[in-house]
Nucleic acid binder design. Sequence first.
DNA 1: CCTCACTTTGACCAAATGGTCAAGACCACG
DNA 2: CGTGGTCTTGACCATTTGGTCAAAGTGAGG
Lengths: 206, 206
Amino acid sequence: MPSKIPRTRIQKKNHETILEAALDVFSRHGFRGATLDQIALASGLSKPNLLYYFPSKVSIHRALLERLMTNWLDPLYKLNANGDPVEEILAYVLRKLDMAREYPRESRLFANEIVQGAPNIADQIEGELKALVDDKAQVIKGWSEAGRIANVDPYHLIFSIWATTQHYADFDAQVRKIIETDGSSHFDDAGVFLNRMFRRMLAPDI
Amino acid sequence: MPSKIPRTRIQKKNHETILEAALDVFSRHGFRGATLDQIALASGLSKPNLLYYFPSKVSIHRALLERLMTNWLDPLYKLNANGDPVEEILAYVLRKLDMAREYPRESRLFANEIVQGAPNIADQIEGELKALVDDKAQVIKGWSEAGRIANVDPYHLIFSIWATTQHYADFDAQVRKIIETDGSSHFDDAGVFLNRMFRRMLAPDI
DNA sequence: CCTCACTTTGACCAAATGGTCAAGACCACG
DNA sequence: CGTGGTCTTGACCATTTGGTCAAAGTGAGG
């Protein structure tokens, strides 16, 4: 039985392969909707082999969420307290939108998990996510109180950024059916729209 | 076997009971995650009895989505082309936020369905939903071109309203863990925030 | 090239799950 | 009441699914 940390070349490779396949399957069907057989098929490994590397289905799911959490938080982490307030927040919006464009599977993975009550990442949300958000909310609150941006509730500002950007990944099926567009050019349009939207709402009160 | 349209008193009552229970279960676990046993338990009926009223699990799900679609679209339907543009759109935002507050299960039901590619409501999205959105987008475009609101892409405006309001229902688990608040007062805060946000972004260009 | 730990898998299992069915309970109505 | 349709359910079934296991295959270091 391989230990939690992969040691050998083969273990590294297969761990990777499994998580990649699992991302595909879990993000499309949710935890309950995904089956080990699907993941096995997608990864090119046999089902017992999956369970040689991970002790259970839920452990694969948890490993995935854990592994992706850091990257997921990175755009907010990069928000720089010493930069120009409006430009920092706008840059954050665009980073999030780029994440939605480049990593829709990751976005949907988290969306599925949270819509169903976050049974497997409650800890991480209450832990590192909340800590980071609290930290950055303080920064934004500072900007707000200094009159460098409009007076807004920093938490709801962050929620509105998450909502509007992730929407294009999580609800892609709906967006695509309403805006008939070949390719994903609606991400570009969304970028223009969100840029104007948040710039307007952040402009300092006189 | 009862026909598609319930006739007798008992059929009406049980149809209702089943759909109510199914809403609870499907919205919490998604289609695949929900089981007939759970719905049976929640409705107080036996599993075979469920299948006496509906031919299959998926038919319950579809009946639910169909039944709720009209109410779901109602807030947008009420957007009045002859009203004051800014106030009409703001009123729409608040109606949507109220829906998220009052009917979070419905919101999550749709969220679950769409995140997973809308396998059961593709028709309705491409049909009545798209038709309604196209219609109202034209109205907003008219306002925009007449200079009565800022120059915004009406489709992305609508998406941003959906995203920001439904976020509080769909991602409630996350919101709750980040804003530690007893009760649901964050809906009130969200109302204040969104009101200011959209008012600012819609203010006509000079 | 041998050995031993690492890796892989076919066969299998128990539980869960969507669905069926025949028989019985119930209800409305003449 | 009694009768015919409506409603309900215990028992059952086939399939799916997460997970096990013993045995066979493979690879890296001595």
